[in-house]
Design a binder for these strands. Structure first.
Lengths: 131, 131
DNA sequence: GTACTTGTACGAGTGGAGTCGAACTTAGCA
DNA sequence: TGCTAAGTTCGACTCCACTCGTACAAGTAC
């Protein structure tokens, strides 16, 4: 049951019922596209570390999703779990479980449809003290 | 000295040195346009009440600035002071003192220059439980 | 089997944000 | 002179987010 939160604690409001391409693991619990709230997304993106994660995914992902280790973030694993979950529960990213690894990708289509231009701002962002 | 914070407590990093049109009071301390940080702005806009304030200013202000009372917010005055200051210190709004009243306006030009499209998202936002 | 790796769950500590009441300051007006 | 209105400041409270260490679960490889 690794990587699967229990029903009692998962806060996802509406889990998407989208037909998946064959061979992909199901996404972890996430809000449906229509349930993504602007104030929640802005709150998720107001943290520099998470802004960095999303920006790196946008600029360097090349259509693939990535594990937590790929980002090269100098934080304990429990802290990274916290931030990646915050992004997923806000609807910013989607996470899938591949064996041991949990890979993340930005929900580009959903976010561009609901908040056009927002991801452009994230991509253009520069960290306070360099990259 | 009402409405003027002391030098010791004001956190504004760089106060703008812009020549003012005649007859307008000086703006209260605010970050210069170049010092406005995306993560700070997103944090300021992640609160539903502040999102509501900015949206109302954008949709109904008609080029004029407005007092706190104009918004019709059902909160104590001390709470409103807190939120209006958060917006101003993040660089989202500008406040000027007119006698007893402190009027707010959105820094539309500055924000559109630094974060194009962001204010459109705020204007298009709908509160969770109606307006 | 054992060891290693990825990531979670849990608990604790810390700090900051949101909320509010009460007292205060100031401007305008009767 | 005194009252009223707009908004601040201060202190206190609560709650949540961030951080982290530790322990645990589950694949993978030897």
């Amino acid at each position: 049951m690794t990587g699967q939160r229990t029903e009692a604690t998962q806060p996802a409001v509406g889990v998407e019922e989208r037909p998946e391409p064959p061979g992909l693991p199901d996404p972890l619990p996430e809000p449906a596209a229509a349930d993504i709230r602007l104030e929640t997304v802005l709150g998720a993106l107001s943290d520099p570390l998470r802004l960095r994660i999303v920006r790196k995914l946008l600029l360097e992902s090349e259509e693939f999703d990535h594990t937590c280790g790929w980002f090269g973030l100098d934080r304990p694993k429990s802290s990274l779990t916290h931030h990646f979950r915050a992004l997923r529960e806000a609807g910013v990213t989607r996470q899938r479980q591949y064996g041991l690894e949990r890979r993340s990708q930005v929900r580009v289509a959903d976010l561009n449809a609901r908040f056009p231009g927002l991801l452009d701002l994230v991509a253009a962002w520069t960290p306070p003290d360099g990259d």
